[in-house]
Design a binder for these strands. Structure first.
Lengths: 186, 186
DNA sequence: GAATATCCGGACGCCCCCGTCCGTTACGGT
DNA sequence: ACCGTAACGGACGGGGGCGTCCGGATATTC
């Protein structure tokens, strides 16, 4: 791929924008057609740039992925492990609540092959870091000792349920607050 | 409607069973066709008995609705309001986790008319009771004073997110435990 | 064992999505 | 200004769900 023609670049950009918006609002289940319509582009153009929905997902969530990465890295670098941990939970919960598709994309296993989408790779890098953060927070006596990584995924997954009502940031923050109070060591 | 012919009764029963199973496993979005196939019945037969999906939902969730009602009533009758409250949260969370469709059906507003499905009526009866339980638990100093009914719905909605992973009872129980620890007054 | 009302399900027309093909448009280098 | 080619999108065949209709099958009644 040398260089796209400028009109093609514009179309590609509009497609990515549309996909971002629709994935965030409606989730990953939106049809390719709907994305194309929103981008004001024919179906063929969409498929030409992104033969697979996964290709589109990878590009559309690149920004969120960076954001996610920043949240985790910053949390892990915090000298106070509990503050780092609660910051991660808080921010990831809010991020989820603002983007219906992202957690789905982040959590989804890619079908049994070696496909290894960008997102999968990121996940594999971030999870061990989080596990370490959890360990440190527990050692510091701040995080309940029976906490496991499964619990973390549990909480993040639960955040997805918030979408059934209204994806208010306030609601997400409140939820994170309650959960974090439940996770603190007594 | 006088009395169904016995073969028709059998078919109706199989339809309800199929709907119950599919709603629980897949959610309310399952197609009428799929329900009919699972019940080993033609589409027309399904539509003859249940012209609307809501009709089918009402009948299919009758049992869960009773169960839900029992959970709430028993919780409200508990002389220890915190024990009652936590029992409600715990059991409703587990109930949710076992049934993808139920919370959706219970939460859904019926479209702006006076339709008033059975489920809607139940909800309108149970919510005030819960509000009272919340008030008593707070007065007893067991439930965090800033708790609101919105928080309760928030938590129950969040429970729906658990379905994205695996609807284990254990996971649901664990989630309820964490949340309840977060809701307890300090 | 017929007569009859009840009930069944295959089939229909409609709509929408899927991924692809190909005739047309318009960009960009000369 | 011209031309080669990248890029476009309407249209296609296939598949599936929707709610309904109607000719045939079956339970019930006498």
């Amino acid at each position: 791929m040398t260089q796209l023609r400028v009109d093609a670049q514009e179309n590609r950009a509009r497609i990515v924008d549309a996909a971002r918006a629709l994935f965030a609002e409606e989730g990953l289940a939106v049809g390719m057609r709907e994305i194309a319509r929103r981008a004001d582009v024919g179906p063929a153009t969409l498929y030409r740039r992104f033969p697979t929905k996964q290709d589109l997902i990878d590009v559309a969530f690149a920004e969120e992925l960076q954001q996610c990465r920043r949240i985790v890295v910053e949390g892990c670098d915090d000298p106070d492990p509990w503050r780092g941990f609660s910051s991660v939970v808080h921010h990831l919960t809010v991020l989820n609540s603002q983007n219906r598709g992202f957690v789905a994309a982040f959590t989804a296993q890619d079908p049994d092959g070696e496909v290894r989408s960008t997102i999968t790779r990121q996940r594999q890098e971030l999870l061990p870091r989080l596990a370490d953060l959890v360990r440190r927070a527990q050692k510091a006596g701040a995080l309940r000792p029976d906490f496991t990584m499964d619990d973390l995924l549990l909480v993040l997954q639960a955040g997805r349920g918030l979408f059934s009502v209204r994806p208010t940031k306030a609601a997400a923050r409140r939820f994170a607050e309650i959960v974090l109070d439940g996770l603190r060591a007594r």
